[in-house]
Simulated assay, not measured.
Amino acid sequence: MAARTGRSPRRTESLSRERIVEAAVELLDSVGEGGLTFRALTERLATGPGAIYWHVANKGELLGAATEGVVAEAVAVKPGSADAPREEIRAVAFGLFDAIAEHPWLATQLSAQLSRSPLGMVTPRIFESIGRQVRALGVPEDGWFAATSALMHYILGAAGQHAANAAIGRDLGPGVDRGSYLDSVSTAWAQLDPDEYSFTRAVAGRLREHDDREQFLAGVDFILTGITSRGATATG
């Protein structure tokens, strides 16, 4: 009689930690954090809870692993030339922006990871992906931490706000799209008191016409310009 070789390759793959995390991300995307339960996970993977607990101890660890997996993919920028750190920072920024937009639960988890679990892999992974390029820009060493922190907090904050705005937009109901919503807000801004809100009235039309991704990148560029200008002054 042939000896038993254990689980089939497909079964082994379905019960790997990577497959469990992948299924968790799928659940988070479709039903949110509240719908991510070990029962739902066992049903999706067609397995028993024991097989999942073998790889993941609890929901907190599962959320952390899902967040780390999505972030790792988002910041995986192919190395460019030595004179392209600015472009690589932009690529990391857009990777995180798109990931947060694609995964509605990610912004909340990133906030929790950065504030409650700084010893985990998420914070240093983002910090490293930006910080290496800040260093390559020629920023003096005593400015590395501040410059990288400023970029990271802007990127995550702006991307998170964009995701929140998108979620609000989805709840506005049928017949109300982004354009019509921004048009109504722009009109309201234009009608504010001209003495108290002269600046807001002046840019009201920009609100109606702006592109979210272009605005996001403009913010990254503003910070990068300040970083490089200060570095040039410090070394000049």
Rank of each mutant, 00 (worst) to 15 (best):
A136R: 15
A164P: 04
L192R: 15
R206V: 01
V122R: 12
W144V: 07
A204N: 11
P140N: 10
N165W: 01
Q215M: 07
G143F: 00
G205P: 01
E214G: 09
Y197S: 05
M121E: 12
Y181M: 05
F145L: 15
A202Q: 13
L151A: 13
Q109W: 03
S180A: 12
V176A: 15
A150C: 10
E128Y: 04
F145Q: 12
P174N: 12
A147C: 05
R125H: 03
R213P: 02
M152E: 11
L172Q: 10
L114I: 14
V134R: 12
F199P: 08
I130G: 06
A218T: 13
S180V: 05
Q109D: 12
F145T: 14
H210S: 09
H103A: 07
S129T: 05
G120Y: 00
E141S: 10
R116S: 13
L172P: 03
Q215D: 12
T187S: 15
D193E: 04
T148N: 11
Q191Y: 02
L156I: 14
D212L: 03
G179Q: 08
G131K: 05
D183I: 00
A147E: 02
Q215R: 14
V185H: 11
F199V: 14
G131T: 04
Q133P: 04
L192W: 06
G157E: 11
F216N: 13
D171G: 07
L217P: 11
G160F: 00
M152P: 05
L114Y: 08
V134M: 03
D211Y: 05
D193L: 02
A164W: 03
E214Q: 11
G175S: 06
R116N: 13
I100Y: 09
L137C: 07
Y154M: 03
G131I: 00
P140M: 07
D183Q: 13
